[in-house]
Amino acid sequence: MSTQKDRLSLIIPNFKESPCVDKVGVEERVARFQTRSIKAEAKAQGLRMALNMIDLTTLEGKDTPRKVKQMCYKAQHLHSVCPGLPNVAAVCVYPSMVGVAKKAVGDSGVKVASVSTAFPSGQAPLSVKIMDTKFAVAEGADEIDMVISRGKFLSGEYNFVFDEIAAIKDACGKTRLKVILETGELVTLDNVRRASDIAMYGGADFIKTSTGKIQPAATMQVTYTMLQAIRDFKLKTGIQIGMKPAGGISNSKLALHNLVMVKETLGEDWLTNEWFRFGASSLANDVLMQIMKAETGVYQSTNYFSKD
């Protein structure tokens, strides 16, 4: 993991000149990933990998400590009838729930990620965003998921966005920072690419597509564009950045195609939960059903999989 000092020693490019992206070309490439047929052993391995990359998420105004505790329990006991399953990578909650979550996951190895910076809109002064972040870190968050200021981005104030990310990174200290671009509000892939570049140079350890509150969220086109940005950043600086598509990845097939995309775009180095995550709430059960279908040979019913 690179430190903010490493990052600040980089020569900052002119973000107005971020590489352009041809959307139709991206769609064609994505369609090719989707023609990959993942069967047998590759499927079994892929599904377990996907399960272990999930950030189990609850981000609702009506969240309560009890709801968060239930989710944390699920995170550690995905499907007890099937021994040997991995846990999910993390739970993702609001700052006010970090303390509860931290205690609930205990020593399971499941990390606690906290959204921050006035999630999901990000419409707060920087001082509030820093306090928000520091609070979550102090509560024990292992990871911070911040949002960028999309309004400022769309007004062309790229330096503002950059400075804000750098300031939050400072506030994080050693806590890993995921930067949410909210690509559904950025609309074009050119914007997605530019925002990715800003985030990575600004100090992101991970870049993340969406809050889950805006549609469309983590389309494969958007994720692919961000993966290309991550690869270019690695080629230029040698620094590895993680990727987290969030929102809309609700079934195993889509998850597997995302993994295919990661493998073919970035390589197998990224196929771990240290560098790739799925932000999702309903994906885990679908993956579990697929795993059980493979184990038992019969199609599954949702009645047999716990919903927390």
Binding site: R36, S37, I38, K39, A40, E41, A42, K43, Q45, G46, M49, N52, M53, P86, N87, A89, D107, S108, G109, V110, K111, L259, K263, E268, D269, W270, L271, T272, N273, E274, W275
Partner: peptide
């Protein structure tokens, strides 16, 4: 703490 961090492994597509 228990280990929950996965290691990068080779992932080849099975014959289809």
């Amino acid at each position: 703490k228990k280990e929950n961090q996965s290691k990068a492994v080779k992932w080849d597509y099975s014959p289809a």
